[in-house]
Amino acid sequence: MADPAQSSPQYAISAENLVRRFGEFTAVNDISFRVEKGEIFGFLGPNGSGKTTIIKMLTGLLPLTEGNAWVEGLDVRKDAEGVRERIGYMSQKFSLYDDLTVLENLRFYGRIYGLSAERMKRRIDEIVQLNGLAPYLNRLAAQLSGGWKQRLALGCAMLHEPKLLFLDEPTAGIDPVARRQLWDLLFELSGQGITFFVTTHYMDEAERCSHVAYIYYGKLIADGTPAELKLLPDVQPAGTDRIEIVTPQVTRALRLARHIPGIRSATIFGESIHALVEEHFNLADLRAQLQKDGITVTDIHPLTASLEDVFVELTYKHQALLEASRA
């Protein structure tokens, strides 16, 4: 029985207890989440943790072993066809036809979705304008750079005006400028009411999402706004503070820091160390102690958790749980 709340038009995606097994291996283990309309939903997790599998389940490419899912109000198990009419999908590889021109690629997808000649012309004009493809219309897709391929792929995926777009690592392997431009485009489209389901490995991209979920080896271990996640007790346990130690000798400093009482955990972030310390930990003492051991301390200051901190903490915790359960 479909729970009316789950198929309610408020949600772009509503997944309930999703399970996907491949033989003995459980790739997706009892995952539930909801994505509201107009959100940019960032779906994160290590490689092989089940992100692409979930996308395939939600787009009807892989049958669900267990659970239920509604996409744009349609039951994926019953109406995968209808789901595919309403969504757009862009894979990691910007799957375009290299030997077709930009215009030919767009027209092909227009035909696949059965757009009328009139609507096709209007949509291609709109997309070309939105994505700035005008100078490249007659160029072969193979000759485009990564950023332009990505824009073309996005254009192909949204030709039929879907209200929900799945983007599987849309910024993998493209340059930072193109990355920034894509996100500007996503915000603009999101403002027009389009929902995005985006997977990424970039933390700065995750910070830009309005809703973030983190999957770790088939389990959903975090789900909320970035601000909510930073306040999770697992990330910021009661009675602890987060500090940053800036030093040119990060590796040696890390080794030393891990043995200093009061420091619960420490990780390198570029030229600094992020550490979780007991409340009321004396930063001046720490600075003195490190300097005594020959470490040049440029700066020590309190820090609010970043999303990267969130995922690192959660990953450590679940790694420990995983190992404990195996032992």
Binding site: G60, E85, K93, S95, L96, Y97, D98, G114
Partner: peptide, 13 residues
């Protein structure tokens, strides 16, 4: 090999 088949499968083809 190109990955376009996967792309086609999420269309109503």
């Amino acid at each position: 090999e190109r990955g376009t088949l996967e792309q086609l499968f999420v269309t109503p083809v």
